[in-house]
Amino acid sequence: MAVPAQKSNNPGKPGKKEAQPLIIAKTPAEEQRLKLERLMRNPEKIASIPDRPKEWNPRAPPEFVRDVMGSSAGAGSGEFHVYRHLRRREYQRQDFLDKMSEKQNADIKYLDKVEQNKQAAEDRTAKRRKKREKLKQKKLIAKKGKIETNNESEDEVDKSSDKSEDDKEEEEEREDDAETPSFIMGKK
């Protein structure tokens, strides 16, 4: 049995997908949305991420200059333009070198500032650590003192309870002694 061929809307291009209508983005957000939609239509396709643009570098000055312009008469009218171009290029190179040195100086200053901030933070931390240690020691000493006073008071309570028992016994003896006469009658 023969399978009928698929019919497409575009005659002459069998099996092709319909072309999507052209959508023009009116805002940057819409443009970004359209780009994401296009990427997500085929998730297996690798998305190319462009590299960062390389920093502009001036062309290095030539090591050997063959056509040196002198101050002699007879230079053609085109020589001025060549001279002007060389001068402009040299000024660009010098500006670039100045900017690079400023950037390096700024980086060095930044790193120095970061180091100073780290040192200051470390100093503050050390100072606070020392303060915490002192406070910890004071608390420990106070706790030991409190424990010792509690122990001493317990000892005193024990002693006072022992003393109070002894006092009670002595008082009882005195009471007993009070019942007996302090002198014996009839004896001399």
Score class of each variant (00 low, 15 high):
N117S: 15
L135E: 07
N150M: 08
R93G: 00
Q20T: 13
F80D: 03
E171S: 04
G74H: 00
P62D: 12
L140Y: 09
R174M: 03
K146V: 07
A29Y: 05
D51P: 14
P58L: 07
A60F: 09
Q92K: 13
K136I: 01
N117G: 08
A126Y: 11
E30R: 10
K99G: 03
A73Q: 12
V114I: 11
D162H: 12
T149F: 06
A106N: 00
V3H: 10
I141G: 04
K113M: 03
D176G: 05
A5C: 09
R128C: 03
R89K: 14
Q104D: 05
G15C: 06
L86C: 09
P43T: 02
L86D: 12
E37W: 09
K136F: 04
P4G: 06
I24A: 03
M185G: 14
S77D: 07
E133K: 08
A19I: 09
E133W: 03
K138T: 05
I147S: 06
P62Y: 08
R66N: 12
L36M: 10
S8P: 02
P53F: 06
N42G: 01
V82Q: 09
S71E: 13
H85M: 10
D98Q: 07
E115W: 05
S160R: 15
F96C: 04
V65F: 13
D107S: 02
K99W: 02
L22G: 02
A106S: 10
K17F: 09
Y110V: 00
V157C: 10
V3L: 15
N151P: 01
W56E: 14
P181S: 12
Q92I: 09
K35M: 10
S101N: 04
P53D: 13
K127S: 12
I49P: 00
M69L: 08
D166V: 02
Q32Y: 10
I49D: 15
P53H: 09
Q137N: 02
N105A: 11
I147G: 04
E156Q: 15
K103F: 04
A126G: 03
